[in-house]
Simulated assay, not measured.
Amino acid sequence: MLWQIGHLCRIEKQLRDAKAGPALRESVRASQSRMIHHRLKAVIDRLALRANLPKSKLVDALRYAAKQWSKLEVYLADGRIEIDTNLVENAIRPTKLGAKNWLFIRCREAGQRAAILYTIVENCRRLGIDAREYLEDTLTRLPGMKESQAATLTPANWLRVRQGKPARKAA
């Protein structure tokens, strides 16, 4: 089972390294990853359904995996979804590590404000934008803008405008 999971991870690494788009990821997953999922599911079902297995954490994990299997396969049908949450966990790690220092900030709204700021900065980092340049520009222009124009200042739209492309309208 571990070898099969490792194979799934290698497929995803190759897709990431190739900077494959959603359509290619879906295609590769359909042709390679789906059959590995079928094999894993068959093994898990066979082991999880054995009534004579002694009670153990492994048996509990197998039964849990069998019940959650449809959720484990969601990424196969959507090329935008990662196989795991590692990228998100790595992105929020600095915030989580600092949480003890900020626990007693004494302002209930500060947590939400901090989360918004972290999201903006992380989006800048992901898009290759200098966060300081972005924040200086947008915070300088924001007070003179109408609320309906604020959506043009998201990091993705800001970058599009910088590249000479039109900003996308808010959904």
Rank of each mutant, 00 (worst) to 15 (best):
K146C: 08
N157W: 00
G144M: 05
A150I: 12
N157D: 00
V121H: 07
A151P: 00
T119L: 10
E122R: 14
S148R: 14
A115F: 12
A151S: 07
E147Y: 10
A151Q: 02
D137S: 14
I116A: 14
D130G: 10
P143W: 01
T119V: 09
I129S: 04
E136R: 10
D137F: 03
A114E: 11
T138A: 08
N157G: 02
I129W: 04
T140I: 01
E147S: 13
E133L: 13
L153P: 02
L135Q: 05
R126K: 09
D130W: 08
I120V: 15
L135Y: 04
L153W: 00
K146G: 14
R141I: 03
A115K: 09
A131I: 02
T138E: 01
T119N: 10
I116S: 11
T152L: 07
R132P: 03
P143S: 04
L135D: 07
D137I: 07
A131D: 08
L142V: 08
I120T: 13
A115V: 14
R141T: 02
Y134F: 08
P155R: 02
I129L: 06
Y134S: 06
V121A: 14
M145L: 14
G128T: 03
E122P: 01
Q112H: 13
P143R: 06
D130A: 11
N157C: 02
I120A: 09
Y118V: 08
L153Y: 00
A151F: 00
R132N: 09
T154D: 00
R113H: 14
N123R: 11
R141H: 06
T138V: 15
G144P: 10
R126D: 05
W158C: 03
A114F: 14
W158P: 02
G128Q: 02
E136Y: 07
R141V: 04
R132E: 08
W158V: 01
C124R: 08
I116Y: 07
A150H: 06
R132S: 09
Q149P: 06
T119E: 09
S148C: 11
L139H: 03
E136D: 12
I129G: 05
L127S: 02
D130N: 15
P155A: 01
D130T: 12
E147R: 15
T138L: 03
